[in-house]
Nucleic acid binder design. Sequence first.
DNA 1: TGGAGGTTTGCTACTGACCC
DNA 2: GGGTCAGTAGCAAACCTCCA
Length: 355
Amino acid sequence: MANHIILPAETQEPKGRILQDKSSTGKDRCWADRKANNELLARAYDIVDRRKAARLRECATILIMEEWADGSKRLAAMSSCRVRLCPVCSWRRALKTYANTLQCAQWVQREQRGVHWLMLTLTVKNCSGAELRNTLDEMMHGWNRLTQYSDVKRALRGWYRGLEITHDVDPLITPSRYRQAHEYYDRLGLVPGAKNPGFDTFHPHFHCLLAVPPGYFKGGNYISADRWRELWALAMGLDYSPEVRIEKMRVRGDQLDLQHSVAEAAKYSCKPGDYILPDDWELSVATVATLDLALAGRRLIAYGGALRDAHRALNLDDEETGDLIDVGEPQQDHAEPGKMVTYVWHTGYRQYYSI
DNA sequence: TGGAGGTTTGCTACTGACCC
DNA sequence: GGGTCAGTAGCAAACCTCCA
């Protein structure tokens, strides 16, 4: 049954300025949208785990921003709930992961001249919510086995591994879905508008950033895409051929585009739009319960080899437990300290207002 | 509320079985 | 005998529960 969620409105509009915060590239940081999603998630957690629901409601209710005359802002203080699925905390965590991984990759680049970078995506078939935790267990064991294979040991100098889980939330095959995978749907005899056979299934996959030695593409250590697929299937004990993508990192001019690949690898573990579904509240609650259980106690991000050495050498803050205020975002240089402004979240107006 | 201690998870290194 | 791979122990870190 579909339930639309209507949050109670407040009767008096707050005085003060609405928070408008843009990144150094001019992109809106969308604080209000993230906090509104945090409130919806808290409602789901009222059923799943009341203690986490309470923590979510306390998260990012007050933001203290350092502001300068040119309109630029820097987050100076905020309370964080650190619930894995929290849209605010997972956004800050993704920014931190990106900044840390980029620093590690640049460190390896300096220490080991001539290394090449590869982006590896390892997938398995979609699974149901009930199977998700076991599937993640198998993937973690599979990854350990894969990295111990002699071909892989010889080829890799270091790696970063991030887990991403997507959730299929389309009950019907939409025209755009059909366009993207028409061969698959044609095989099943399905047309746009038909029931989506993958509805409410989960797709866990690893995004990996791999450092390989100079001469990798010409020497005997090279591993082809088909070989990666074989090795992943072997490590996982699969009786089917999994989808595996391996790409050499983009080159822009003479510069390896580290930022692009790191940004791809260090994405959200789970996008809020995959579990906060205002048009299907029962599915939202069930999905939150599934993901909460499946992700409990897991390390979603891991470093190995030279990238692990880099993380230690740089003494970087942990992505999971570290500070979510300073997440390594690029900041404009200012000669003078800015003015501290406090913004308070108003549930009814779904906006941050200055006080 | 915070600290102590037990449990869980995951990385690394080692060992032993198997195959050529 | 050497190479490969699965299994596992050791360790560190995170997480959870209990108790003062």
